[in-house]
């Protein structure tokens, strides 16, 4: 039995891909499945070395520069063929923007089911099960995958990567026809959050809401991000007010994050916001209203004006640093 993991190249291997891979590798060991991975970027050797000890037998790659790494149109024919030739029983991808759309397109080509956004992949006596949040995480469904091949996208619920041993995957090089026949073309790849941690991959997220009071007062929050190595997030109220770009929105109609630590500043805790951070490991709330709903959904809370609390917190954290060193 063979399983395949899709690795997403955004420059280098994304943390989301690595987590999806590590989760799948753990289950593959229990199921006795042989694990393969497909890397659509360049420098497959470098990626192979990052996969050391993860239990991957083969890393599939195409040593050609002409194949655009982010174009599903360019890669789907090869991917579909690989699944058929290798008789892959399970395909796992990261539940990122690109991961989800590639997997949906692949599922259509294979006429297979796809369970998106799962948070767990388990196996018992040859049966595969996934857990998938429904209704913005208010409910959790357990699905038994009966048909093969099955497709699953996994969302990071923890960033723990377990390695065992030193074994490196073997690289299998494939050839693909020239990309001149592609109908769609990616004209440009633009990075917007250069220098600041990416929301979906971040272990710590600091978010601001309507309590930020305007577009000009985010300096302290950004500094807190820097001190903690955190990504910046926002509530929809802050986004809709035009204070911050919608790429930062956390929630039902924004990003879903599962960091180790989520700090909500000036956010009331609306159900649609909770939908985006419900699975954070620890939640801290800073709000001046002691009756704010967010205090029902946090581990630690401080009642107070965020413009007082955040600078003090930055001072405290900076003061702790020498001790930690």
């Amino acid at each position: 039995m063979r399983w395949l993991v899709l690795l997403e190249p955004r420059g280098e291997l994304t943390p989301g891909s690595l987590v999806a891979l590590a989760t799948t590798a753990g289950t593959a060991r229990l199921a006795g499945a042989e694990l393969h991975a497909l890397w659509t970027g360049s420098a497959a050797e470098d990626v192979a070395s990052r996969l050391r000890g993860l239990g991957i037998t083969t890393l599939h790659a195409v040593p050609a520069e002409h194949l655009p790494p982010l174009s599903h149109e360019a890669w789907l024919p090869l991917l579909t063929q690989m699944v058929k030739d290798l008789e892959i029983a399970l395909i796992v991808g990261p539940a990122s923007a690109l991961g989800k759309s590639w997997m949906a397109a692949l599922a259509a080509r294979l006429d297979a089911e796809l369970a998106q956004n799962c948070i767990a992949l388990e196996t018992t006596q040859g049966t595969l099960r996934v857990r998938k949040p429904l209704y913005a995480g208010k409910l959790l469904a357990e699905l038994r995958l009966d048909r093969q091949p099955a497709l699953v996208t996994l969302r990071p619920s923890s960033f723990q990567i377990e390695r065992s041993g030193e074994a490196l995957p073997v690289i299998a090089h494939h050839t693909v026809n020239n990309s001149n026949s592609l109908r769609s073309s990616i004209k440009d790849v633009v990075k917007v959050s250069a220098g600041i941690a990416e929301l979906a991959d971040a272990r710590i997220v600091v978010s601001g809401g309507r309590g930020m009071g305007g577009a000009d007062d985010w300096t302290a929050l950004r500094e807190l991000c820097q001190v903690l190595g955190a990504a910046l997030g926002a509530s929809r109220a802050a986004v809709d007010a035009g204070w911050i770009h919608h790429a930062y929105q956390v929630g039902q109609t924004g990003k879903v994050v599962s960091p180790d630590l989520y700090i909500a500043c000036g956010i009331s805790g609306a159900v649609q916001h909770l939908a985006g951070m419900r699975s954070a490991h620890k939640v801290v709330a800073i709000n001046k209203d002691p009756t704010a709903e967010i205090f029902q959904h946090c581990d630690y809370g401080i009642v107070g004006d965020l413009f007082e609390v955040v600078p003090m917190l930055i001072q405290e954290l900076k003061a702790q640093r020498p001790q930690a060193a």
Binding site: K138, A141, L143, R144, L145, V283, Q296, C298, D299, I302
Partner: peptide, 28 residues
């Protein structure tokens, strides 16, 4: 469907709800 829904449960995350509401500097 190519899968069976075996169960649906309410997702619950137990939070500690330790709230500091006195002197801000102490809470921080």
């Amino acid at each position: 469907a190519g899968w069976q829904v075996e169960s649906v449960t309410r997702q619950q995350t137990a939070r500690r709800q330790q709230i500091f509401s006195g002197e801000i500097s102490t809470g921080v």
